[in-house]
């Protein structure tokens, strides 16, 4: 549960921006970069009584598509699994929770151009 390594170039500034954005919206940070054998969760926040897991996607260029399109079914399945096991080990496994997506577009210098927050981006099956 350490901070991200410097090799993840665009991820780090994106995550910072996403966190600032969420804090302004009234979310409280619980944990960052939770890694387990079931996958990684970028941000774990709390809004009211709901635990919100946030996947941050950032891109410097739109040539590969908008970051909102990056949530592939495989990635969604990984997120479901990771959050499920997180809940299992937490103090309140029955609490309500959801998975959000924050998509960020950065310019060449790494400045934030646009932030989109998608609530309940990944649904259960």
């Amino acid at each position: 549960m350490s901070s991200s390594p410097s090799s993840r170039l665009s991820g780090a500034p994106g995550e910072e921006a996403a966190l600032r954005f969420l804090l302004r919206k009234g979310y409280r940070l619980v944990e960052r970069n939770v890694r387990s054998r079931w996958g990684e969760i970028d941000l774990v926040c709390r809004k009211g009584s709901t635990l919100v897991f946030v996947e941050v996607k950032s891109r410097r260029s739109l040539s590969a598509g908008h970051p909102l399109e990056m949530l592939t079914p495989a990635k969604q399945a990984r997120l479901r699994r990771a959050t499920f096991f997180y809940m299992m080990r937490s103090e309140h496994p029955k609490a309500s929770y959801r998975i959000d997506l924050v998509a960020i577009i950065l310019d060449r210098e790494g400045r934030v151009q646009e932030i989109t927050h998608l609530e309940n981006a990944v649904e259960g099956e």
């Binding site: 959050t83 309500s96 959801r98 309940n120 259960g124 099956e125």
Partner: peptide
């Protein structure tokens, strides 16, 4: 019920 939102 609570949990990851879904509609089944």
């Amino acid at each position: 019920s609570s949990g990851l939102p879904s509609f089944t």
